[in-house]
Amino acid sequence: MKHVDEYRDPALAQELAARIRRLSRTPARFMELCGTHTMALARHGLHAMLPPTVSMVSGPGCPVCVTATEEIDRAVKLARTPGVVVATFGDLVRVPGSRGSLAAQRAGGAAVEVVYSPLDAVSLAAKRPEAQVVFLGIGFETTAPTVAAAILTAEQQGLKNFSVLSAHKLLPPALGALLSGPDLGLGGFLCPGHVTTVIGTACYEPVARERGLPCVVAGFEPVDVLASILMLVKQVEEGRSEVEIQYQRAVSPQGNPAAVALMDRFFEPVDAPWRGLGVIAASGLALRPEHAKWDAARRFDLEVPPAQDHPGCRCGEVLRGMLTPPECKLFATACTPSSPVGPCMVSSEGTCAAWYRYRREE
Protein backbone atom coordinates (compact mmCIF):
# COMPACT_ATOMS: atom_id res chain seq x y z
CA MET A 1 0.00 0.00 0.00
CA LYS A 2 1.30 3.45 -0.90
CA HIS A 3 1.99 5.99 1.80
CA VAL A 4 -0.71 8.67 1.99
CA ASP A 5 1.82 11.36 0.98
CA GLU A 6 2.04 9.76 -2.46
CA TYR A 7 -1.63 10.57 -2.99
CA ARG A 8 -0.82 14.21 -2.21
CA ASP A 9 2.21 14.45 -4.52
CA PRO A 10 1.88 17.75 -6.48
CA ALA A 11 3.98 16.46 -9.37
CA LEU A 12 1.81 13.37 -9.77
CA ALA A 13 -1.32 15.52 -9.55
CA GLN A 14 0.02 17.78 -12.32
CA GLU A 15 0.82 14.73 -14.44
CA LEU A 16 -2.72 13.35 -14.03
CA ALA A 17 -4.21 16.73 -14.89
CA ALA A 18 -2.08 16.89 -18.02
CA ARG A 19 -3.30 13.42 -19.04
CA ILE A 20 -6.91 14.54 -18.54
CA ARG A 21 -6.29 17.59 -20.74
CA ARG A 22 -4.69 15.50 -23.48
CA LEU A 23 -7.38 12.82 -23.47
CA SER A 24 -10.58 14.83 -23.01
CA ARG A 25 -12.26 15.78 -26.28
CA THR A 26 -15.93 15.23 -25.45
CA PRO A 27 -17.54 17.79 -23.13
CA ALA A 28 -18.59 16.02 -19.92
CA ARG A 29 -20.21 17.13 -16.69
CA PHE A 30 -19.48 14.82 -13.77
CA MET A 31 -21.20 14.90 -10.38
CA GLU A 32 -19.43 14.09 -7.13
CA LEU A 33 -21.74 12.29 -4.70
CA CYS A 34 -19.70 12.97 -1.57
CA GLY A 35 -19.22 16.21 0.32
CA THR A 36 -15.64 15.25 1.15
CA HIS A 37 -14.92 15.16 -2.59
CA THR A 38 -16.57 18.56 -2.97
CA MET A 39 -14.28 20.02 -0.33
CA ALA A 40 -11.18 18.25 -1.71
CA LEU A 41 -11.83 19.61 -5.21
CA ALA A 42 -12.14 23.15 -3.85
CA ARG A 43 -9.40 23.05 -1.22
CA HIS A 44 -6.73 21.76 -3.61
CA GLY A 45 -7.75 23.92 -6.56
CA LEU A 46 -8.50 20.89 -8.72
CA HIS A 47 -11.22 22.63 -10.74
CA ALA A 48 -8.61 24.98 -12.18
CA MET A 49 -6.48 22.02 -13.29
CA LEU A 50 -9.23 20.56 -15.47
CA PRO A 51 -9.72 21.37 -19.17
CA PRO A 52 -12.79 23.33 -20.37
CA THR A 53 -14.29 20.06 -21.58
CA VAL A 54 -14.54 18.69 -18.03
CA SER A 55 -16.70 20.26 -15.32
CA MET A 56 -17.64 19.04 -11.86
CA VAL A 57 -20.95 19.63 -10.09
CA SER A 58 -21.82 18.79 -6.49
CA GLY A 59 -24.68 16.46 -5.61
CA PRO A 60 -26.56 15.48 -2.43
CA GLY A 61 -23.49 14.05 -0.70
CA CYS A 62 -23.33 16.17 2.44
CA PRO A 63 -25.24 14.41 5.25
CA VAL A 64 -25.75 17.55 7.31
CA CYS A 65 -26.95 19.44 4.22
CA VAL A 66 -29.57 16.88 3.17
CA THR A 67 -31.03 16.66 6.69
CA ALA A 68 -34.50 18.15 6.28
CA THR A 69 -35.64 21.23 8.19
CA GLU A 70 -38.38 19.24 9.94
CA GLU A 71 -35.70 16.90 11.32
CA ILE A 72 -33.78 19.88 12.70
CA ASP A 73 -37.02 21.14 14.22
CA ARG A 74 -37.51 17.84 16.06
CA ALA A 75 -33.96 18.03 17.41
CA VAL A 76 -34.58 21.59 18.60
CA LYS A 77 -37.78 20.52 20.35
CA LEU A 78 -35.89 17.67 21.95
CA ALA A 79 -33.25 20.09 23.26
CA ARG A 80 -36.03 22.09 24.92
CA THR A 81 -37.28 19.01 26.79
CA PRO A 82 -36.43 19.11 30.52
CA GLY A 83 -33.96 16.46 31.62
CA VAL A 84 -32.68 15.75 28.10
CA VAL A 85 -29.08 16.06 26.94
CA VAL A 86 -28.76 16.19 23.15
CA ALA A 87 -25.50 14.76 21.83
CA THR A 88 -24.56 15.48 18.24
CA PHE A 89 -21.78 16.15 15.79
CA GLY A 90 -20.52 19.72 15.67
CA ASP A 91 -21.77 20.77 12.23
CA LEU A 92 -25.39 19.96 13.02
CA VAL A 93 -25.47 22.34 16.00
CA ARG A 94 -25.41 25.44 13.78
CA VAL A 95 -27.90 24.33 11.09
CA PRO A 96 -30.93 26.63 11.18
CA GLY A 97 -34.34 25.08 11.66
CA SER A 98 -37.71 26.77 11.29
CA ARG A 99 -37.48 28.29 14.74
CA GLY A 100 -33.81 28.45 15.62
CA SER A 101 -30.86 26.10 15.85
CA LEU A 102 -29.40 23.78 18.45
CA ALA A 103 -26.69 26.40 18.99
CA ALA A 104 -29.36 28.93 19.92
CA GLN A 105 -30.92 26.44 22.33
CA ARG A 106 -27.54 25.81 23.93
CA ALA A 107 -26.98 29.57 24.29
CA GLY A 108 -30.34 29.69 26.05
CA GLY A 109 -29.30 27.04 28.56
CA ALA A 110 -30.28 23.78 26.87
CA ALA A 111 -27.96 20.79 27.32
CA VAL A 112 -26.47 20.28 23.85
CA GLU A 113 -23.17 18.40 23.79
CA VAL A 114 -20.85 18.03 20.79
CA VAL A 115 -19.42 14.53 20.51
CA TYR A 116 -17.00 12.99 18.05
CA SER A 117 -18.55 9.54 17.82
CA PRO A 118 -21.77 7.74 18.85
CA LEU A 119 -19.78 5.88 21.51
CA ASP A 120 -18.96 9.22 23.13
CA ALA A 121 -22.71 9.70 23.57
CA VAL A 122 -22.95 6.29 25.26
CA SER A 123 -20.13 7.30 27.62
CA LEU A 124 -21.95 10.54 28.33
CA ALA A 125 -25.09 8.59 29.27
CA ALA A 126 -23.07 6.41 31.62
CA LYS A 127 -21.66 9.52 33.32
CA ARG A 128 -25.03 11.31 33.50
CA PRO A 129 -27.49 8.72 34.89
CA GLU A 130 -29.84 11.50 36.01
CA ALA A 131 -30.36 12.70 32.41
CA GLN A 132 -31.79 11.22 29.24
CA VAL A 133 -29.00 11.36 26.63
CA VAL A 134 -30.20 11.37 23.02
CA PHE A 135 -27.77 10.98 20.15
CA LEU A 136 -28.84 12.59 16.87
CA GLY A 137 -28.14 9.95 14.26
CA ILE A 138 -27.41 11.58 10.91
CA GLY A 139 -25.30 10.49 7.96
CA PHE A 140 -25.29 7.83 5.28
CA GLU A 141 -24.44 4.14 5.37
CA THR A 142 -20.99 5.04 6.70
CA THR A 143 -22.24 6.23 10.09
CA ALA A 144 -25.32 4.06 10.58
CA PRO A 145 -23.30 0.93 11.55
CA THR A 146 -21.38 2.96 14.14
CA VAL A 147 -24.68 4.12 15.66
CA ALA A 148 -25.88 0.51 15.69
CA ALA A 149 -22.65 -0.43 17.50
CA ALA A 150 -23.31 2.32 20.04
CA ILE A 151 -26.80 0.97 20.74
CA LEU A 152 -25.35 -2.50 21.16
CA THR A 153 -22.81 -1.10 23.64
CA ALA A 154 -25.54 0.70 25.59
CA GLU A 155 -27.52 -2.54 25.68
CA GLN A 156 -24.52 -4.48 26.98
CA GLN A 157 -23.95 -1.86 29.67
CA GLY A 158 -27.59 -1.96 30.72
CA LEU A 159 -28.11 1.77 30.18
CA LYS A 160 -31.70 2.97 30.38
CA ASN A 161 -31.04 6.65 29.72
CA PHE A 162 -29.67 6.45 26.17
CA SER A 163 -31.63 6.68 22.92
CA VAL A 164 -31.17 7.68 19.28
CA LEU A 165 -33.12 10.09 17.11
CA SER A 166 -32.47 8.64 13.67
CA ALA A 167 -32.29 10.85 10.61
CA HIS A 168 -30.00 8.51 8.70
CA LYS A 169 -30.15 8.50 4.90
CA LEU A 170 -29.47 5.82 2.30
CA LEU A 171 -27.57 6.84 -0.84
CA PRO A 172 -28.99 4.47 -3.53
CA PRO A 173 -32.62 5.68 -3.31
CA ALA A 174 -31.45 9.30 -3.45
CA LEU A 175 -29.38 8.56 -6.54
CA GLY A 176 -32.47 7.03 -8.14
CA ALA A 177 -34.56 10.08 -7.23
CA LEU A 178 -31.91 12.40 -8.62
CA LEU A 179 -31.84 10.56 -11.95
CA SER A 180 -35.64 10.52 -12.11
CA GLY A 181 -35.79 14.31 -11.86
CA PRO A 182 -34.92 17.00 -14.39
CA ASP A 183 -32.11 16.14 -16.79
CA LEU A 184 -28.90 17.57 -15.35
CA GLY A 185 -26.81 16.74 -18.41
CA LEU A 186 -24.50 14.49 -16.44
CA GLY A 187 -21.81 12.38 -18.04
CA GLY A 188 -20.93 10.25 -15.03
CA PHE A 189 -20.51 10.06 -11.27
CA LEU A 190 -17.61 10.35 -8.86
CA CYS A 191 -18.91 7.88 -6.26
CA PRO A 192 -18.27 8.13 -2.51
CA GLY A 193 -15.42 6.11 -1.09
CA HIS A 194 -16.65 5.94 2.51
CA VAL A 195 -20.21 4.84 1.71
CA THR A 196 -19.04 2.31 -0.86
CA THR A 197 -16.61 0.83 1.66
CA VAL A 198 -19.74 -0.31 3.52
CA ILE A 199 -22.33 -1.08 0.81
CA GLY A 200 -20.11 -2.12 -2.12
CA THR A 201 -20.61 -1.21 -5.75
CA ALA A 202 -23.76 -3.14 -6.73
CA CYS A 203 -26.01 -0.07 -6.40
CA TYR A 204 -24.09 1.73 -9.15
CA GLU A 205 -24.42 -1.07 -11.71
CA PRO A 206 -27.92 -0.04 -12.92
CA VAL A 207 -26.69 3.55 -13.29
CA ALA A 208 -23.90 2.43 -15.58
CA ARG A 209 -25.82 -0.31 -17.39
CA GLU A 210 -29.27 1.22 -17.79
CA ARG A 211 -28.50 4.94 -17.71
CA GLY A 212 -25.22 4.73 -19.60
CA LEU A 213 -23.41 6.83 -16.99
CA PRO A 214 -19.87 5.85 -15.95
CA CYS A 215 -19.24 5.51 -12.22
CA VAL A 216 -15.85 5.63 -10.48
CA VAL A 217 -15.45 5.14 -6.72
CA ALA A 218 -12.84 7.67 -5.62
CA GLY A 219 -10.52 8.25 -2.71
CA PHE A 220 -10.15 11.66 -1.11
CA GLU A 221 -6.62 12.91 -1.70
CA PRO A 222 -5.82 15.16 -4.71
CA VAL A 223 -4.21 12.31 -6.67
CA ASP A 224 -7.19 10.06 -5.89
CA VAL A 225 -9.67 12.59 -7.22
CA LEU A 226 -7.74 13.44 -10.38
CA ALA A 227 -7.06 9.75 -11.10
CA SER A 228 -10.79 9.08 -10.75
CA ILE A 229 -11.70 11.93 -13.09
CA LEU A 230 -9.19 10.53 -15.59
CA MET A 231 -10.93 7.15 -15.36
CA LEU A 232 -14.28 8.82 -16.04
CA VAL A 233 -12.85 10.71 -19.01
CA LYS A 234 -11.42 7.48 -20.43
CA GLN A 235 -14.83 5.82 -20.21
CA VAL A 236 -16.49 8.76 -21.97
CA GLU A 237 -13.91 8.88 -24.75
CA GLU A 238 -14.03 5.10 -25.24
CA GLY A 239 -17.82 4.98 -25.21
CA ARG A 240 -17.96 2.81 -22.09
CA SER A 241 -20.21 3.05 -19.04
CA GLU A 242 -18.91 0.84 -16.26
CA VAL A 243 -18.40 0.83 -12.50
CA GLU A 244 -14.73 1.12 -11.61
CA ILE A 245 -12.92 1.46 -8.28
CA GLN A 246 -10.03 3.88 -7.99
CA TYR A 247 -10.06 3.69 -4.18
CA GLN A 248 -8.98 0.07 -4.14
CA ARG A 249 -6.96 0.42 -0.95
CA ALA A 250 -10.24 0.71 0.98
CA VAL A 251 -13.12 -0.40 -1.27
CA SER A 252 -14.08 -3.84 -2.57
CA PRO A 253 -17.08 -4.64 -4.78
CA GLN A 254 -18.80 -6.58 -1.98
CA GLY A 255 -18.37 -3.82 0.62
CA ASN A 256 -18.39 -4.72 4.31
CA PRO A 257 -21.05 -7.40 4.95
CA ALA A 258 -20.45 -7.33 8.72
CA ALA A 259 -21.14 -3.59 8.90
CA VAL A 260 -24.26 -3.97 6.75
CA ALA A 261 -25.49 -6.84 8.93
CA LEU A 262 -25.05 -4.77 12.10
CA MET A 263 -26.91 -1.86 10.50
CA ASP A 264 -29.73 -4.16 9.38
CA ARG A 265 -29.96 -5.73 12.82
CA PHE A 266 -31.05 -2.44 14.40
CA PHE A 267 -32.46 -0.38 11.54
CA GLU A 268 -35.03 -0.79 8.77
CA PRO A 269 -35.67 1.37 5.68
CA VAL A 270 -38.42 3.99 5.88
CA ASP A 271 -39.61 6.86 3.71
CA ALA A 272 -37.57 9.92 4.60
CA PRO A 273 -37.46 13.64 3.77
CA TRP A 274 -34.40 15.06 2.01
CA ARG A 275 -33.60 18.70 1.67
CA GLY A 276 -33.98 19.53 -2.00
CA LEU A 277 -35.28 16.13 -3.02
CA GLY A 278 -38.45 15.83 -0.94
CA VAL A 279 -39.65 12.56 0.56
CA ILE A 280 -37.95 9.55 -1.02
CA ALA A 281 -39.35 6.06 -0.49
CA ALA A 282 -37.23 3.70 1.64
CA SER A 283 -34.39 6.23 1.78
CA GLY A 284 -34.10 6.60 5.55
CA LEU A 285 -33.44 4.36 8.51
CA ALA A 286 -35.62 3.92 11.60
CA LEU A 287 -35.04 1.64 14.53
CA ARG A 288 -36.81 -1.67 14.18
CA PRO A 289 -39.82 -2.26 16.49
CA GLU A 290 -37.92 -4.82 18.54
CA HIS A 291 -35.43 -2.07 19.42
CA ALA A 292 -38.07 0.56 20.19
CA LYS A 293 -36.68 1.25 23.67
CA TRP A 294 -33.68 2.94 22.04
CA ASP A 295 -35.84 5.11 19.77
CA ALA A 296 -36.12 8.75 20.89
CA ALA A 297 -38.98 9.27 18.42
CA ARG A 298 -41.02 6.80 20.48
CA ARG A 299 -39.73 7.92 23.86
CA PHE A 300 -40.49 11.63 23.47
CA ASP A 301 -43.21 13.80 21.95
CA LEU A 302 -41.51 15.19 18.85
CA GLU A 303 -44.50 16.43 16.88
CA VAL A 304 -43.61 19.78 15.30
CA PRO A 305 -45.47 22.30 13.11
CA PRO A 306 -44.86 22.24 9.35
CA ALA A 307 -41.28 23.22 8.54
CA GLN A 308 -40.50 26.66 7.19
CA ASP A 309 -37.33 27.17 5.15
CA HIS A 310 -35.79 30.57 4.63
CA PRO A 311 -37.50 31.91 1.47
CA GLY A 312 -34.23 33.03 -0.13
CA CYS A 313 -32.14 29.94 0.60
CA ARG A 314 -31.44 27.81 -2.46
CA CYS A 315 -29.59 24.94 -0.78
CA GLY A 316 -32.07 22.48 -2.24
CA GLU A 317 -31.16 23.45 -5.80
CA VAL A 318 -27.45 23.36 -4.98
CA LEU A 319 -27.85 19.82 -3.61
CA ARG A 320 -29.59 18.73 -6.82
CA GLY A 321 -26.79 20.14 -8.97
CA MET A 322 -29.13 22.67 -10.55
CA LEU A 323 -27.11 25.75 -9.64
CA THR A 324 -23.81 26.80 -8.09
CA PRO A 325 -23.64 28.71 -4.79
CA PRO A 326 -22.85 32.12 -6.35
CA GLU A 327 -26.15 31.90 -8.22
CA CYS A 328 -27.94 32.23 -4.85
CA LYS A 329 -28.50 35.90 -3.99
CA LEU A 330 -27.74 35.22 -0.33
CA PHE A 331 -24.32 33.67 -0.98
CA ALA A 332 -21.47 35.57 0.70
CA THR A 333 -23.85 38.43 1.60
CA ALA A 334 -26.62 37.48 4.03
CA CYS A 335 -25.31 33.90 4.18
CA THR A 336 -21.74 33.37 5.41
CA PRO A 337 -20.05 30.76 7.62
CA SER A 338 -20.37 33.07 10.63
CA SER A 339 -24.05 33.74 9.91
CA PRO A 340 -25.38 30.81 7.84
CA VAL A 341 -28.86 30.85 6.37
CA GLY A 342 -28.72 27.29 5.03
CA PRO A 343 -26.89 24.08 5.91
CA CYS A 344 -24.72 24.10 2.77
CA MET A 345 -22.85 27.04 4.32
CA VAL A 346 -22.63 25.37 7.74
CA SER A 347 -21.22 21.92 7.07
CA SER A 348 -17.53 21.21 6.60
CA GLU A 349 -18.68 19.17 3.57
CA GLY A 350 -21.14 21.76 2.26
CA THR A 351 -20.89 23.06 -1.29
CA CYS A 352 -21.53 26.67 -0.28
CA ALA A 353 -18.89 26.46 2.45
CA ALA A 354 -16.40 25.06 -0.09
CA TRP A 355 -17.10 27.88 -2.55
CA TYR A 356 -16.93 30.53 0.18
CA ARG A 357 -13.59 29.35 1.52
CA TYR A 358 -11.78 28.45 -1.66
CA ARG A 359 -13.59 29.63 -4.81
CA ARG A 360 -15.06 33.09 -4.18
CA GLU A 361 -12.55 34.73 -6.57
CA GLU A 362 -14.02 32.70 -9.42
Rank of each mutant, 00 (worst) to 15 (best):
R8W: 10
A11K: 15
L16Y: 07
A18D: 14
R21H: 14
T26P: 13
P27D: 09
M31F: 07
L33C: 04
T36R: 02
M39C: 10
R43Q: 12
P51D: 10
M56V: 14
T67S: 12
D73F: 11
T81Q: 15
V84S: 00
V86W: 02
F89M: 03
G90D: 04
V95K: 00
A107V: 11
G108F: 09
Y116M: 05
S117D: 02
P118M: 03
V122W: 01
A131N: 02
F135H: 08
L136G: 00
I138E: 15
G139Y: 04
F140G: 06
E141D: 12
A144D: 04
P145R: 00
T146F: 13
A148L: 06
A149K: 02
L152P: 05
E155R: 15
Q156M: 14
N161F: 09
A167I: 07
A167E: 05
A167T: 15
L171R: 06
A174C: 09
L179F: 14
S180M: 13
G181H: 05
G188C: 07
F189G: 06
G193I: 02
H194C: 09
V195E: 12
G200F: 04
A208R: 01
V216L: 06
V216C: 04
F220N: 04
I229M: 00
L230Y: 07
E238H: 07
I245M: 01
R249K: 10
A258F: 03
A261S: 05
M263D: 02
E268A: 11
D271W: 08
A272M: 13
A272E: 11
A272D: 09
P273Y: 04
G278S: 08
L287I: 10
R288V: 15
R288T: 15
P289F: 05
H291P: 06
A292G: 14
K293H: 06
W294E: 14
W294D: 08
D301E: 14
P305G: 10
H310L: 02
C313L: 03
G316N: 13
V318L: 08
P325T: 15
C328L: 13
A334H: 05
C335K: 00
T336I: 03
P340Q: 01
V341P: 00
P343C: 09
P343Q: 06
C344F: 03
G350L: 06
T351E: 14
R359G: 09
R359A: 13
E362Q: 14
